[in-house]
């Protein structure tokens, strides 16, 4: 095989909110099927980086590529909108607070975008919804409204909704942080299942155990820079940087307290 470009390629990503520099020259390459965890203290820029990938928070500088397509291109407004809407269909995103559409039943939450954007018929979209909801174990709740679900169930539906667009990449921004502890596992299981299917994933998380068991690589971010990255056994067991050591020590202490 010839030397391949990375599946996702983030080059010199910079982002400022006003005078606050949130991302300072971030570089990240992810191969197809790879699972990368991003850890780091609050405010370090993890969400901002993730949201930059599908341009919810556009970068101030740098480039983001998905395969051979640049995501954050410089285009006139109309063309850019068309471009970014196409790109976003290929990138699934899961939020900390689920963001299910409360006015729609579980079924319609999943079918809305595929019907609208991919021109699926009702029957096709229904079959798709049933398939995805079965996968996340939520098929029994297909005719419920989001308000009738637990947090863990909502998040599983949110994952099904993203998967229904058949994305090439899934981004998770603290998908389990808003959940009661006993509901975390059911969401983690779904994510593990995706990992087994070799879905390319970038996972922002505070759960070190989960990151260690699922991810191929871990990035430790602090104050807008990637301080250290490597395989989980190195980052969690033998971190080189003092900042990583401190963070993990504090985190562990916090979890045991």
């Amino acid at each position: 095989m010839n030397a391949q470009k990375p599946f996702i390629d983030i080059r010199h990503a910079k982002k400022s909110f006003g005078t606050l520099e949130v991302l300072k020259d971030i570089n990240l390459q992810v191969d197809r099927g790879q699972i990368v965890a991003i850890i780091g203290p609050s405010g370090s820029g993890k969400s901002t980086l993730l949201r930059a990938i599908n341009d919810l928070d556009p970068l101030s500088g740098g480039e983001i590529w998905l395969e051979d397509k640049q995501i954050n291109m410089d285009l006139p407004h109309r063309q850019y909108e068309r471009h970014i809407n196409e790109v976003r269909q290929e990138i699934g995103m899961v939020f900390q607070h689920f963001n299910l559409f409360p006015h729609l039943k579980v079924r319609e939450n999943v079918t809305l975008a595929p019907k609208m954007l991919k021109g699926l018929s009702d029957a096709e979209a229904n079959a798709l919804a049933e398939e995805q909801l079965t996968k996340v174990g939520m098929i029994e709740r297909i005719d419920y409204y989001p308000s009738q679900l637990s947090g863990g169930q909502k998040q599983r539906v949110a994952i099904a909704r993203a998967l229904a667009m058949k994305p090439k990449v899934m981004l998770f921004d603290e998908a389990t942080s808003a959940l009661d502890p006993e509901l975390v596992e059911e969401v983690n299981l779904v994510m593990k299942q995706l990992a087994e299917e070799h879905m390319t994933m970038i996972i922002v998380t505070h759960e070190m155990g989960f990151a260690e068991s699922v991810c191929d690589r871990v990035l430790f971010m602090d104050q807008g820079v990637v301080v250290e990255e490597g395989p989980p056994e190195v980052i969690f067991r033998n971190p080189k940087s003092e900042r990583t050591q401190n963070f993990l020590r504090k985190h562990l202490a916090g979890n045991q307290a």
């Binding site: 939020f95 963001n99 299910l100 559409f101 809305l112 975008a113 609208m116 993203a162 667009m165």
Partner: peptide, 27 residues
Amino acid sequence: VDKGQGEAARTLGMSKWQAMRNVILPQ
């Protein structure tokens, strides 16, 4: 309407107007 609603819709690939029409306005 919660900002996350529009973001979730846009993330799926909807245009601003599609998100407005199908997700934000009904709420």
